[in-house]
């Protein structure tokens, strides 16, 4: 249960918003649930709804709208490569394609070890250092810019090592 395990964090999140407006805390709480469980499970959704006195529908309907929220399991690390126009003009589509080929997955797919998922995303505001990607995992979201196939593979190797440790 989130409420027991992350008591102080939940309290801090709720404190950010006026007491009457605790619905605002829904996205931070969903992020919390996602970090805890890897994705937002039906049980977590009900839990968040209860914390905020909302209907589960009001909470769960957000997941499909926002691209950083996931209700389905994927790799422990989601590698999200920007292939939007500015990055595409600097070779990002090619990078994404070759990276996936190297890993033996399709775009959007997950490696059989369950650690790495590679996805395409829209502009990340890192266009001057294109190609840019971000890694979404239990720690949050981190940027990696000026990527080449080599640097991306290195990054994935590091993540796989880290991921299989713990």
């Amino acid at each position: 249960m989130l409420a027991d395990k992350h008591k102080s964090e939940i309290k801090a999140i709720l404190k950010k918003y006026p007491a009457k407006e605790k619905r605002s805390a829904v996205m931070p709480l969903l992020f919390l649930a996602q970090r805890e469980y890897g994705h937002i499970t039906p049980a977590a959704l009900v839990e968040v709804a209860e914390l905020l006195e909302l209907d589960p529908t009001e909470v769960g309907s957000l997941i499909g709208f926002y691209t950083l929220l996931h209700d389905e399991a994927a790799g422990k690390y989601r590698i999200q490569i920007c292939t939007d126009l500015p990055c595409a003009l600097r070779g990002a589509e090619e990078l994404a394609k070759r990276l996936c080929a190297n890993l033996g997955i399709r775009l959007g797919g997950t490696m059989t070890n369950g650690l790495i998922t590679v996805e395409e995303v829209m502009c990340l505001a890192g266009c001057d250092k294109a190609p840019t990607l971000q890694v979404q995992d239990a720690d949050g979201i981190h940027y990696h810019e000026n990527q080449t196939l080599g640097s991306a593979m290195e990054l994935i190797a590091e993540l796989m090592e880290k991921g299989s440790d713990g």
Partner: peptide
């Protein structure tokens, strides 16, 4: 005041869902 149906997804995928029990 029974918000048991809502839109999820967006764009052309926007759809009515219920996640209530």
């Amino acid at each position: 005041d029974d918000p048991v149906i809502a839109f999820s997804e967006r764009g052309r995928k926007l759809e009515i869902v219920t996640l209530s029990e």
